[in-house]
Amino acid sequence: MSYPPPPGGWQDPQSSPPVDPYAPVDPYAVAKSPYPQPAGDPYAVPGGYPPPGAYPPPGAYPGYAPPTSKTNSLAIVALVLSLVGFTSCITAPIGAIMGHVARKQIRETGEQGEGMAKAAIIVGWILTALLVALIVFYIVMIVIAVNSDSSSSY
């Protein structure tokens, strides 16, 4: 079914031609691009390939950049020990001390891990302080229990 052109013999550039809804559709048809396509091989290298031997010799370019500095392993161990201190408070002071040593090593070597070492120090000393407070509390309770008048009326 075709429609007659509009009066005046001109076609509106904004309107598309009418589509017949009952026309058979080809599922393998490729839609045309509204943009102009360059002629020739679409995969060709612009300007062509350089002639053989035009590439720079091996070693003409510098190698890859050196990898970034690694993380200080003592900082990792210190953080792990400080965090394990939540379950066994014995490792918390060890982690805090190792955190101090790791920060010194990081300043000397320039490795990564400054934040982990600082976190190990903070967590380790806080847990150590809580452990000392708990021990002092138990000692005070034991002293109070021993010194209390324990007379019974049997």
Rank of each mutant, 00 (worst) to 15 (best):
P18R: 07
P18C: 02
V19K: 08
V19C: 06
D20P: 05
P21T: 06
Y22S: 09
Y22Q: 12
A23M: 05
A23V: 01
P24Y: 00
P24G: 00
P24I: 00
P24A: 03
P24V: 00
V25K: 06
V25H: 02
D26F: 02
D26P: 00
P27H: 04
P27N: 05
P27W: 02
Y28A: 07
Y28K: 05
Y28P: 00
Y28D: 11
A29P: 08
A29D: 13
V30R: 13
A31F: 06
A31E: 13
K32G: 04
K32M: 09
K32C: 01
S33G: 04
S33L: 10
P34R: 09
Y35V: 12
Y35W: 11
Y35R: 08
P36T: 10
P36W: 05
P36R: 08
Q37L: 15
P38A: 14
A39M: 15
G40R: 14
G40E: 13
G40L: 11
G40S: 15
D41Q: 12
D41L: 13
P42F: 07
P42R: 12
P42E: 07
P42M: 07
P42T: 10
Y43S: 15
Y43G: 14
Y43L: 15
Y43Q: 13
Y43K: 14
A44M: 10
A44L: 08
V45Q: 10
P46D: 10
P46V: 07
G47Y: 02
